[in-house]
Design a protein around this nucleic acid. Sequence first.
DNA 1: TAGTGGTCTAGACCACGAC
DNA 2: TCGTGGTCTAGACCACTAG
Lengths: 233, 233
Amino acid sequence: MNVILEYYIDKVMKMSVPLYQYIKEQLIEIIQDQAANTPVQSERNLAMEFRASRMTVRRAINELVDEGYLYRDANKGTFVSDQSLLKRNTLVNSDTYSYKTLYFDVKINTENPMRKKLNARADEAVIHLFRTIKEDELPIGVEEIYIKRSELSDADFANVSKTKKVMDLLGTGTSHYTFTPELVPAKYASLLALRIGTPIIVTECLINTIQGRPLAYLRTYNNPENRVIEITS
Amino acid sequence: MNVILEYYIDKVMKMSVPLYQYIKEQLIEIIQDQAANTPVQSERNLAMEFRASRMTVRRAINELVDEGYLYRDANKGTFVSDQSLLKRNTLVNSDTYSYKTLYFDVKINTENPMRKKLNARADEAVIHLFRTIKEDELPIGVEEIYIKRSELSDADFANVSKTKKVMDLLGTGTSHYTFTPELVPAKYASLLALRIGTPIIVTECLINTIQGRPLAYLRTYNNPENRVIEITS
DNA sequence: TAGTGGTCTAGACCACGAC
DNA sequence: TCGTGGTCTAGACCACTAG
């Protein structure tokens, strides 16, 4: 009741978070200290407790299931998932990384092969960015970035060299990663503090708008000693 | 009308596909030859056409959005996504791969380090499997697999050496991948048709039940010439 | 102003599982 | 038998966009 009161205060004060969103947050709060496989209340009970319809509660629960917090067992109930491996992706998760831009430019009429990947005409402006990635002073990787100028707002363009995740500049869309094993290039070995001949993983990422227009191309040389690439799904 | 008739024939004949599922399939049929950004009919129109409620149509559309087929633009409409890069993951996509099992055994009381990863007691039976992966006679990779016997039904156990995707043996759960660059091990170089000293990507995958119990551990040595690791999201 | 997607309600019936 | 999640309906109001 306290719970639902809180929500309606928000609502009245025009914060106006959707109810299902509010219920999600409350459920996360409730389960976050619970052991895996703990049952959550039934949908009908939660609906009463939050003074919401069952469909609204279901929406909240469904999204938590999709996000890996809960799982359903038909005819039995809904339970807390094992969260020891919560969905994560070290390629995108950059909260603790620091970046140093070593090169920044906007080029027109260059012969760079990346233009083809971006499907950019010869006279289109393309942003070039080269930066190092560190975590606690340890070199994590070096990154070459190419972004189509025409896809960025002026505000985003002004921030581009400060941006951590290029994804954040762009709305929803698709990203396509490829992973290639290489020996560390001589020109990057010292930046990565790796010996010549060390095998590394190079990740390439092409980011498209949901409409199918290429937006950005990233090429990252990852230091295998300091950055373990991992993906949980 | 033809469309909805078909569905109800199915329904009467007890095929009993959920309506939202049927609508999904029909929508995929409709859009599969359409260009990106083509609008689909409004939810209200589709509801009339399928004689379904708007909420049911919404569910179908929502799932297609999650799966990357469609995208929404609030207050404007729903549109066909660019499908040139449909979600895929070459690590799991094994339709065209052929497997050859070189080693199969069930072991108890071994000193294998994989037992720790599987959290298996010393006296638990663990299935060991070693196999090569080929596509059109080209070596794609070699794979070491460890599966807890106790998590498999007798039927699954009988099929385990014929199984393509280990994931298929297990219900839903989480899988956690790590990617490591290595030089191809001498013992696998000839199986992979690679020269000694070639850098490769080794993927390790730990599969857990949704309850958090480890089920299987896979270690794959990927041939970079014949298998490009890629992930679209 | 008319149409769209976004949210929400208050019911309903079903199959299945545990008791 | 009772409670669960799975599916579905027929409405409703909102904010926003485009003509």
